[in-house]
Amino acid sequence: MQVFAFYLFAAIVIASGAFTILSRNPVHSVLWLILAFFNAAGLMVLVGAEFIAMLLVIVYVGAVAVLFLFVVMMLDIDFAELRAGFAKNLPLGVALALVFLAELVFGIGAWQAGGLDMAESGVSPGREGVSNIQAVGELLYSRYVFLFEAAGVILLVAMVGAILLTHRQRLGVRPQNVARQVSRRPEEAVRNTNPETGKGVSL
């Protein structure tokens, strides 16, 4: 049952990953990417990391991919231009792919040759009776607390930077004052007049 589920999820991840780069329409690409994320979460559940799986769905599928989709849907895409770009960037892409392949081969080769001992370098099996969330929390807030806090600060700085770059104070606009809008009463906004014919009302 587990083996069947593993091969099902893994096959879907690989297939949807392939379709992500193969499909012509960028919106379809993003949707395939979402399917890949979702099935990756399924794989996480299979290895017993249900907390990471749920976070993967909440963060990547629920938030990041929605923003991707949001942006990609509003793009005005010229397919001919895309294809010209493909030919131009092909050598760079192939070079990157070769680097990744070499790293994978060396990494797995070193592991196969027995040069690495995974068990002693901090990767330990889960303890009995301790849930995933508890284990992650204990580790994150004790041993890795400074790294965790540093990651938070970096994200904050990135956010402040992004706001600073895009925010500009424009003069001559009249922003809404919601408190004033809400507190506005009919007495101060409406005036009953009875103008004479042909005279009109001065505002």
């Binding site: 907390f51 749920m54 769905v57 909440i58 599928v61 629920g62 929605v66 969330i133």
Partner: peptide, 25 residues
């Protein structure tokens, strides 16, 4: 009866937006 039940609900409810977004597009 999973021990990440609430996170599961949150994850699934965050998927709900895709139906609407895909329909609109």
């Amino acid at each position: 009866n999973i021990n990440v039940g609430l996170l599961y609900v949150l994850a699934i409810s965050s998927l709900g937006v895709y139906g609407v977004v895909i329909a609109g597009w």
